[in-house]
Design a protein around this nucleic acid. Structure first.
Lengths: 109, 109
DNA sequence: GTTATATGCAACCATATGGTTGCATGTCAA
DNA sequence: TTGACATGCAACCATATGGTTGCATATAAC
């Protein structure tokens, strides 16, 4: 869970996911081409994405194919979105009662 | 956008958001109490959350109150969830056609 | 079989990150 | 006004992170 957030925190790794959303199953070499960094750097990023279960690897001869694995993140992020959604609704109430006291405000959510 | 992901990547900061989901508008001192680290460390984390627009600050005398700001993240994360949802549906197709060729597989998503 | 291609592994490096401590400042309360 | 309390600021430190390069290995192509 922590791994997923950490994996998503890096710009390069989000770009890599973008790449795979665009065309799934690309090789390391392919994914490297659009980025301005070494193959090894990209490989490290992909390893982190794999460890976070955001992508899966399929070997085909000497080529390493990368596929998006959307299952685990969906639930996790959903949980967080859900909580922020609730908070958003409650915030509307918050705005309406701008003049309330500190104690009341503390208990608003 | 990048800031939001980076802010969420840290365990302590997610705990802090948890704290605020539990009781909104807590002071720095209050938020520090449950964590086993210095007030200054917590203050830094809160600064990062504020910079990412995930919380907002209200000063009340010498006390700094922290409130969750759910608006910006909701949209951003929604975008990502949406894409992963799409990918999840497509992956079902993927699984069904396990025996397809590499080229076909590359174009599956 | 030889050469080119796709990748892994390991050492190394600069900077970012998450924490600390010490001191300064502003506000509340006696 | 004096003291306690809530916070900020700055320097400092250890480790994590994101990148590099050089070399090794396995597969494909000629």
């Amino acid at each position: 869970m922590s791994d997923v957030f950490k994996a998503l925190a890096d710009d390069t790794r989000r770009i890599l996911l973008d790449q795979l959303f665009d065309q799934n199953g690309q090789t390391l070499r392919q994914l490297t081409q659009t980025l301005s960094m070494s193959r090894q750097a990209v490989s490290k990023h992909l390893k982190i994405l794999e460890a976070a279960n955001l992508i899966t690897i399929h070997w085909q001869g000497r080529e390493k194919l990368h596929f998006i694995n959307p299952v685990p993140i969906a639930e996790i992020v959903h949980r967080w979105v859900g909580r922020f959604e609730e908070a958003r609704l409650d915030m509307l109430v918050d705005l309406k009662t701008e003049s309330e006291t500190k104690e009341e405000k503390r208990n608003a959510l």
